Simulated assay, not measured.
Amino acid sequence: MPRSVSTNEALRERSRERILGAALEVFAEKGFEAASISDVTQRAGVSRGLVTYYFPNKQRLAAELLDRWLDGIGAILDLRGSADEKLAGIIDGTLMAAASTLPVQRLAISLMMQPGTHPVFAEVEEAKSVRVAQIEDAIRSIFTARGAADPAVEEMLLRATLEGVTVKLAIYPDTFPVEAIRRRLHAQYGLPEPSTPLPIQSPAVDRLRAK
């Protein structure tokens, strides 16, 4: 009996997700430049033809992964509550995402910074320009509500700070004191001290060292 349209669509989506998952693992392990489509094919357990059907080259795979990363950042648009509660939610949500999805964060940072793949990031960011602007405006509105003199600068500073924290966490995953940094950020912005720690690993160390 022929498969239904919905069944075929589900199988295609499953294959696509398997390929993307394999690409994330391979890129995170080998680095984008060193990884090959053949590596992704072997890790996914599918034919090369199927991989190239969905993604003609590595750049398209990277673009899809970056697209999803940007969508993850867009979750801040769903935050509810007062300006302080939203700001605390952005800080905590970013730290949680950085700690719990480290391979994704490390890959996104790498693709953004490497000369060979920065244009891919720029292309994805441009394609999502409306969404990115919504994220920026949402953060700026929080600082406007808090009485900031220059909400745009505050938005850029917050994002730069959190992205810097993510970079350090990606480099020093075993010694980065996430909880201590979180509480320092809350204090820096005059937010109430968190009543409970984040449910993630957070060693109590005073020096960052790679292991």
Results as ranks from 00 to 15, higher is better:
P173E: 03
L191D: 05
I200K: 09
P197A: 09
S195A: 14
P197I: 12
R182F: 01
I181E: 02
T166I: 08
L198I: 13
Q188W: 13
I171R: 07
S195R: 15
A187R: 14
L162E: 01
I181N: 03
L162V: 02
P177I: 00
D174L: 10
Y189A: 07
R184F: 14
L169H: 01
L158F: 05
T196P: 10
L198W: 04
G164F: 04
A180N: 07
P194D: 03
L158C: 08
P173R: 00
Q201G: 10
R159D: 06
L162S: 01
P177G: 03
T196Y: 15
T196W: 15
P177V: 04
V167N: 02
S195K: 15
E193W: 11
P197G: 09
I200T: 12
L157Y: 12
I200E: 05
L162C: 05
L162R: 00
R183Q: 10
A187H: 14
P197Y: 11
A152S: 15
L191E: 07
I171V: 14
T175N: 02
Y189G: 06
T196C: 13
T175D: 01
R159L: 08
G164N: 07
V178Y: 01
G190E: 10
G190C: 12
P173Y: 00
L198R: 06
V167E: 05
A160Y: 06
F176R: 02
A152P: 06
V153C: 12
E155Q: 15
R182K: 14
S202N: 10
E155R: 07
Q201Y: 15
H186V: 08
Q201R: 10
Q201D: 12
L169Q: 01
R184E: 14
I181D: 01
R184I: 13
L191F: 10
H186C: 07
P199R: 08
R184P: 08
Q201L: 14
H186A: 09
L185T: 01
P197N: 10
R183W: 10
